[in-house]
Amino acid sequence: MSDVSTTGHWDQFMEGIWRQNPVFVMVLGMCPTLAVTVSAVNAISMGVATTFVLACSCLLVSMMRNVVPKEVRIATYIVIIATFVTAVDYIIQAISLALYDALGAFIQLIVVNCIILGRAEAHASKNRPAVATYNALGMGVGFTIGLLALGSVREVLGAGTLFGVSLFGANFQPWVIMVLPPGGFFVLGAWLLFFAWHARRKERQLREAGQHA
């Protein structure tokens, strides 16, 4: 991990957005990814809530990394994560009850989102607070982008709107399946397919460039 902590903060931030994107590369935290992405607004709210919990808990975990004995570290991480989830739960209720209803049980379920515990265990507990926070923020933004990619496709096809703005007029025929759970699987599958295709194409280009050289 020493090489990671010496790289720049920007690299730490970009790590979660592209190379280790939690949704499209690591395929972690699928429960909220599939469940709340029926609209772009829901997706962004969920992403922001998760980012907040991720950044705060990674900061705290990193700050305490030298005092927490390893025997009780998981218990400590879970308590810290649960704390910030509870705080987010109250904050969302205070901002908008409609949003709170739309996200439903998935706010509380951020506690068991494996991205957060995974980051706390694999990264924050071994790095300085600043590095851990940048990495966590990058992961959170990457997660938000992933959710938004799903949420916008599902909202456009499922309701004909994007961020609540009608795109096709009143006569749009909604694709009911897109706002139902199977739609989440279809859209996620399509995105994963796209990224796999992209990765393979890039690999081929690199190989061809190598052959020419």
Partner: peptide
């Protein structure tokens, strides 16, 4: 099945 789930009315 996809059409049924996406466009149940039509």
């Amino acid at each position: 099945a996809f059409a049924q789930a996406a466009f149940p009315t039509a």
